[in-house]
């Protein structure tokens, strides 16, 4: 097996590993730890130059309280939910159907259509920035949640289709053929035979897309601009007031914004890992 399990290596190597691991972890988490540290400091600490020392007073509660009561954060969080959940539902629903069609039916151009879905994933999305912005503007969807949702669904469906099609391909074809022999209609096969078997894939994909969309910053900034429609990732910048940045509140806000995807990850860890490796080994 590769890599060799640590338990089977020499004692010196084990010791090196055990000392290096915490160091690497702290180094890796340093930015995050700094944000956490900043989020419990009073704003004045940043003006006195006390960045890394002990907080001059513990303001953790006050900062987090202010994030929820003194800013538009609750609204941004709600926008994030209203953007992420429909996107997840839409992208997963669409890709289940496209995946089924491309995975089960053999027709001319099947491969071509599939490649087009895949190819979409290779387009760097920065290239799409200007045309997509103009498109949403012309459609009257600029600065609305629905505009962002529609774009995310369209863009994510490519990746989801790749994922779903490969999963459905791996299902035993005999099940579908048996159902056909019984005279079950194609819709019912999709609904009663294939869909239940896809549950692990759906769960994994939903978790994956949830974190993608929740953490999206680029499109949030490009397609929305008011507190009525901006998700939390873009809304954090509202702590950059006209003249100065509220580092302590921005940090507290970032932590709050990061909690849902992190919670989602821990709650659905099993599916998440499954999602990343699904289809990797056949």
């Amino acid at each position: 097996m590769f890599p060799t399990p640590i338990a089977k290596t020499s004692r010196t190597w084990q010791l090196t590993y055990q000392t290096l691991l915490p160091v690497a972890m702290v180094l890796w988490l340093l930015p995050l730890l700094a944000v956490m540290w900043f989020s419990i400091k009073p704003g004045a600490d940043f003006t006195t130059g006390n960045y890394w020392g002990l907080p001059s007073s513990f303001e953790g509660f006050a900062n987090y309280f202010l994030v929820f009561t003194g800013s538009d954060m609750p609204r941004y969080l709600w926008n994030s939910v209203m953007i992420t959940v429909p996107t997840v539902a839409g992208a997963v629903a669409l890709s289940c159907m496209t995946g089924f069609a491309l995975g089960v039916y053999r027709f001319k151009g099947n491969l071509l259509i599939f490649f087009m879905f895949v190819a979409g994933n290779f387009v760097p999305f920065q290239i799409l920035m200007v045309p997509v912005r103009d498109l949403t503007l012309d459609m009257g969807l600029y600065d609305t949640r629905i505009g962002l949702v529609l774009f995310h669904i369209a863009f994510q469906t490519g990746f989801c289709t790749l994922f779903m099609r490969n999963f459905i391909r791996a299902l035993p074809r005999e099940l579908i053929e048996a159902a056909r022999v019984e005279g079950v209609s194609e819709w019912r096969i999709f609904w009663y035979v294939v869909l239940p078997l896809m549950r692990p894939a759906i769960a994994a994909l939903a978790v994956l897309i949830f974190t993608f969309i929740w953490n999206d910053y680029f499109w949030a900034v490009v397609l929305t601009q008011s507190p009525e429609s901006q998700p939390v990732t873009a809304g954090i910048t509202s702590f950059n007031a006209q003249y100065r940045a509220m580092y302590h509140l921005m940090s507290a806000g970032s932590i709050v914004a990061a909690i849902p995807p992190v919670a989602m990850f821990f709650a659905m860890q099993k599916h998440f890992i499954a999602g990343l490796t699904l289809g990797a080994v056949k």
């Binding site: 704003g43 004045a44 940043f46 003006t47 006195t48 130059g49 006390n50 006209q242 003249y243 100065r244």
Partner: peptide, 25 residues
């Protein structure tokens, strides 16, 4: 700002918005 607040620099050419953080500090 901290350089002025901590007394390492004596003055700051700035707009009036600088007063609020100085007081907070």
């Amino acid at each position: 700002l901290p350089f002025m607040v901590n007394g390492e620099a004596a003055a700051y050419l700035m707009g009036n918005f600088a007063v609020a953080p100085m007081r907070e500090a």
